[in-house]
């Protein structure tokens, strides 16, 4: 897949029941990848390459038919919520009409939102609450592909655990899950493999188990740097002048 004018090689595959985390530099094209699969790139975008979904090419018509149904999307930007519609109503969209309200309340409880929060407009909710509302809009029967674009920032640990649990449930029920994130530590709790993207190219697709210790199991230098720059690891390694970066992995 190619996006924009660059000619990079971006390649990711996700199997049934698998969770693949997509991590990498800010601006490397992670969200564009998600938008390309969904067919919601801006009008001036040029997209080349092939997207195969369940053995068949994912054409624009097919995307239109499947998205919001068996292909579920959790967007990164809270701009995707309707600013003029109460959030409870937004979560009810796409649910079975007769039980929509009941189901929505259940989802709110599940993601640690109050029942009365459903009456609020998006601007009245905190960033972390909006994330959870966005996430609740994705939980539907019969979902086969879930694309979650940074579903976790700004969320406290308990709600975060609930979201990770749901993504895992999706996979256990046979869906494919693409988890785009910067939160590598959370992703590793549930992901089977991790695709690392930089400047629109796939740098490496690693087993989740390779992310441990000082990253000796990781193949590329970029992935090792990404791993060691985490606050949990050697954060400061990137601080030291260029010449010393190579030694940054030695830890503190």
């Amino acid at each position: 897949m190619r996006a924009g004018q660059k000619k990079p090689l971006l390649q990711v595959d996700i199997h049934e029941g698998e969770i693949v985390a997509v991590v990498g530099a800010s601006g490397s094209g992670k969200s564009l990848l998600a938008h390309a699969v969904l067919g919601i790139l801006p009008g001036n975008a040029i997209c080349e390459g092939r997207i195969i979904y369940r053995g068949e090419e994912l054409t624009e018509e097919r995307k239109l038919r499947l998205r919001g149904r068996e292909i579920s999307f959790i967007p990164q930007s809270v701009n995707y919520l309707d600013p003029l519609l109460r959030v409870g109503k937004q979560v009810q969209i796409g649910l079975e009409k007769s039980t929509a309200q009941l189901k929505q309340r259940e989802l709110f409880r599940q993601y640690d939102l109050q029942e009365r929060d459903g009456q609020l407009f998006p601007y009245e909710l905190s960033g972390g609450m909006l994330r959870r509302v966005l996430f609740a809009t994705s939980v539907r029967e019969g979902v086969r592909l879930v694309i979650a674009d940074e579903p976790t920032p700004g969320i406290h640990p308990q709600a975060l655990a609930e979201i990770l649990k749901q993504l895992k449930t999706f996979a256990e029920e046979g869906a494919r899950v693409m988890l785009i994130t910067h939160d590598i530590m959370s992703a590793l709790e549930i992901a089977h493999r991790v695709a690392v993207i930089k400047d629109g190219c796939t740098v490496e697709i690693a087993e989740a188990s390779a992310f441990e210790g000082r990253g000796e199991g990781l193949k590329t230098e970029y992935t090792q740097r990404l791993w060691s720059a985490l606050p949990q690891n050697d954060f400061d390694g990137e601080f030291i002048e260029k010449g010393a970066v190579g030694h940054g992995f030695s830890g503190k």
């Binding site: 991590v23 990498g24 530099a25 800010s26 490397s28 990164q76 940074e150 920032p153 700004g154 910067h182 939160d183 590598i184 740097r225 990404l226 791993w227 720059a229 985490l230 606050p231 954060f235 400061d236 390694g237 990137e238 601080f239």
Partner: peptide, 9 residues
């Protein structure tokens, strides 16, 4: 929160 670990650091 919207930055990769290297850029964040």
């Amino acid at each position: 929160t919207m930055l990769d670990a290297i850029t964040q650091a």
